[in-house]
């Protein structure tokens, strides 16, 4: 526990402590406003056209905000010194070796996926997916105000991705991952000699498949089947859903691919944690 307190109060982990407070606060703040909009209705055009002079009203706010932020930064800088460890030594690898805190969600993904997926493909898709958001979200409502009722799907997906898959994984990576990147609860001692049995097996093995070729084919079927959930849903609902017709095939394919890729992470996490599954698809060229 002492050791956990030392970890939490490490200077470089202060931003994570700040995030622990800031994220719930802003979620609460936005939720309250969204609920109010959903009850009382969308603000009218009149409210939008109610204009004020930037000087002095906006400039005053900016000035006050800047002073408060500089005060906080000043106190933070006086109270807490930036860390400086011993000189770098390529022959002395610390255990655990951690990336900067804002990349720890990515490092955490390495537990569940091979580096080429966790370190390259998924980050690339995160960026591409973020950029794609305005082009695939064709819902014209909910622009310029907080609401939940008018865009529940968009909010649920983004909040899940941002809060759970980015912020929470970052916090887990910082505070709960010890030597060997093993999971340690806050009260557990970070034992560098901890022996963790590697009992993970591939999904095909769980299904009793022993031949490599069959396992390769089995993995392909599972992964292809997972990603074809999207197209099948489209073919099934295309005629009855106005929403799908408005969205169009191309946008739908992008949305379903990005969504299924995102959900692959929690699915793989559950498979790993509860069923000890290592890979879903083992092929001669890559493993997923």
């Amino acid at each position: 526990m002492e050791h956990f307190l030392a970890l939490v109060t490490k200077p470089d982990n202060v931003p994570i402590l700040a995030i622990l407070f800031l994220i719930p606060y802003f979620m609460w703040l936005s939720y309250r406003q969204a609920r109010q909009t959903d009850i009382t209705g969308v603000p009218s055009d009149a409210a939008l056209n109610d204009k004020v002079y930037v000087w002095p009203y906006l400039c005053r706010n900016e000035f006050i905000c800047a002073i408060i932020v500089m005060l906080v930064l000043g106190v933070w800088s006086i109270m807490i010194d930036a860390p400086l460890e011993e000189p770098s030594d390529p022959t002395k690898t610390p255990n655990p070796s951690k990336a900067p805190w804002y990349f720890l969600a990515l490092q955490e993904m390495l537990v569940y996926f091979d580096p080429w997926i966790a370190g390259v493909v998924l980050p690339g898709l995160i960026i591409a997916g973020l950029i794609a958001i305005p082009y695939i979200d064709i819902n014209p409502k909910g622009k310029g105000y907080y609401t939940i009722k008018e865009r529940p799907f968009a909010l649920a997906v983004f909040s899940f991705g941002f809060i759970v898959l980015w912020i929470v994984l970052m916090i887990v990576g910082t505070f709960l991952r010890g030597p060997g990147w093993n999971f340690f609860a806050p009260w557990e001692y970070w034992d560098p000699h901890l022996v963790v049995p590697l009992t993970n097996v591939n999904l095909s093995y769980l299904f009793g498949i022993r031949s490599e070729t069959t396992a390769n084919f089995f993995g392909f079927v599972v992964v292809a089947g997972y990603f074809s959930v999207g197209p099948i849903f489209y073919l099934w609902k295309r005629n009855s859903s106005r929403f799908l017709q408005e969205l169009g095939l191309v946008r739908y394919v992008v949305v379903s691919f990005l969504f299924l890729t995102m959900m692959a992470l929690p699915i793989k996490m559950i498979l790993r944690i509860f069923f000890n599954v290592k890979y879903i698809w083992v092929s001669p060229w890559f493993n997923i």
Binding site: D12, P83, L84, E85, E86, P87, S88, D89, P90, K92, T93, P94, S97, K98, A99, P100, F103, Q107
Partner: peptide, 12 residues
């Protein structure tokens, strides 16, 4: 250029 910097960038 300390241990923290070196290994964080190595890992990253």
């Amino acid at each position: 250029w300390d241990q923290l910097a070196f290994w964080a960038v190595t890992v990253g």
